[in-house]
Structures are given as C-alpha cells and as structure tokens.
Amino acid sequence: MTPVRHYALVCGALLVLLLLTVGAAYVNLGPFNVAAAMLISLMKAALILLFFMHVRQAGPVLRLFVFIGFFWLALLISLSLSDFLTRGVPDKSTADQRPSTSGETKPPAP
C-alpha cells in the first residue's frame, strides 16, 4: 500500500505546478505561453494518473484500457486538426459579415 507520505508529496508537487503555470502565464513567451501551460498540465495529469489513479500499479490489461481511452482522444484531435489547420479559417469570413449586436463591425458594402 502506498504510504501517506507519497500521496502528500504528489499533492505538494501538483500545487507547485499550479503556481508555476499561473506564474508562467504572466511572462510573455509569445506562442510558447500555451505550450508551457499544456506541458505543465500534462505533467499534472501524469502525476494524477500514475499515483492517485494507481495506473503505476496497474496490470497490462488495465494499462491498455487507460491508453486506449486517451488514444481515441488523440485521434479525434489530430485527425480533425489535419483538416482545420490546412484548409484555412472555416468561419471567419462569414463571422465578420454577421450583423453585430454592438455595431462594432459593419457588414461589407454590397
């Protein structure tokens, strides 16, 4: 059985990563801001999965189930983005033409 101390250490690490991600958000890293935030989130997720959700102690069949769950998500996002990232903006031209409630954007002249 995992000692309480291990869970406390994981919890402490998660809180440190939380402070780190908030701090990093206020430093202008350009496009790397979101990359840093996602990297820290992945680290937090790994800690939660491995220690709190006991994937570290799991057998091979259970690990396969855990892997497949996130594998479908990776397929969903990567295959969808293979369209959205290559075909250009799907909705921008129509969004700009829609009548605005505050009147900030004007419909183009006919």
Binding site: V22, N33, V34, A37, S41, A45, I48, M53
Partner: peptide
C-alpha cells in the same frame, strides 16, 4: 477514480480558460 478523473479534466480546463492573454 471518478473523482480523480474530474480533477484531471479541470487540470486542462484551467489553463485554457483562465490563463490565456495574461502576459
């Protein structure tokens, strides 16, 4: 497992919702 999963979802929601454009 259920409770930790709910935590897991929030770990990704938090930076996407709150941390954008702060710098």
């Amino acid at each position: 497992l259920y409770w930790h999963f709910v935590d897991l979802v929030w770990v990704f929601l938090f930076p996407l919702i709150y941390l954008g454009g702060r710098a």
